[in-house]
Design a protein around this nucleic acid. Structure first.
Lengths: 167, 167
DNA sequence: TTAAACTTTCAAAAAATATTGAAAGTTTAT
DNA sequence: ATAAACTTTCAATATTTTTTGAAAGTTTAA
């Protein structure tokens, strides 16, 4: 396979994968493109490579920056902004995990805590509801703690985890 | 909070959470409803509770069954089908993890293997592409193995994991 | 201050995704 | 074999999400 083919395949696949994870396709594609760019890249270049509009590029770059996985680079003597991706994969995974925890796990826990607090004396249905939502709360809490622990020492956490699991 | 309020809140929140994960809202809501139903439930009841059409119910129930997290129940003397959810959370998480691995991680690994195989002698860009995609391949492989290991012994894997991490 | 070189915003348009509902299909009872 | 009681399918429709592009906003240089 040629480089340009491989590059396209990588960007397209990353975009498709992103969609399945509730991340918009363009955002994932921009990230893919930045991941494989050795130098930081201007908005113009991104628009050109991915064939997207300026507005689209601007908004998705902003999202990536909000997620903390893309940074701005101000080059000496250049007026325009350049962008580069967090390339350390341990760091990338930690940032994504922290962000998703904040956006999804914490709110889910809040809801579970609330709804599991009903007093369930009356019917079988109510008792079962309470049992299940309490169990879910405990499970999600544990998962949350586990993720926290795993990524606590950011340096090489995945290798460390694997080692511990294999002993 | 009253039971019926709590029930609604739970179903709605679970649906919203599903959307963020690339799972369709109705599918997540049906799952939520089945999770809190002590008895298995007919399609009619699901349509009624969630205010959805027969077609929608049918298709999403099928998806849930394909994922292996909802089962059919044929009741004595009843012609219609009833449905119930996998309620053991360890088992549920394992099934979801296996399914997503199969659908997403394996294909991603395949692409990464392919594109990282280019020979990158010419430019800086090509070298960097190779470096990055190889690194990604390794990282994703490790993550895949870790998940495999963690869920290997399905019984109470999350608690076991937490214990190991805390020592 | 002005204007050039940029970036951001957001209403409108396009694209993607989910939902409906009725026709077609299936199963079971008689 | 017929019909009643169901479920599935899928073209049409509705909804949601993404994308565009031009106007408004910002920054820098002269």
């Amino acid at each position: 396979m040629e480089f340009s083919q491989a590059k396209n395949k990588f960007i397209q696949s990353w975009g498709a994968l992103g969609s399945q994870w509730g991340i918009n396709k363009t955002m994932a594609q921009i990230h893919a493109f930045l991941m494989i760019s050795p130098e930081s890249v201007s908005m113009e270049e991104i628009m050109d490579e991915l064939k997207i509009s300026r507005g689209n590029a601007s908004m998705n770059l902003r999202s990536l920056i909000d997620w903390g996985i893309v940074y701005k680079d101000f080059k000496q003597g250049e007026r325009k902004e350049f962008f580069y991706a967090e390339k350390d994969l341990d760091e990338l995974a930690i940032k994504i995990s922290r962000e998703r925890t904040k956006r999804e796990i914490k709110p889910a826990l809040k809801v579970l805590k609330e709804v599991s607090a009903i007093d369930a004396n009356a019917t079988e249905k109510e008792k079962h509801f309470k049992t299940q939502t309490c169990a879910l709360y405990n499970f999600v809490s544990k998962a949350d703690n586990a993720i926290e622990k795993i990524t606590e020492y950011n340096d090489n956490w995945l290798s460390k985890l694997l080692k511990r699991l294999l002993t």
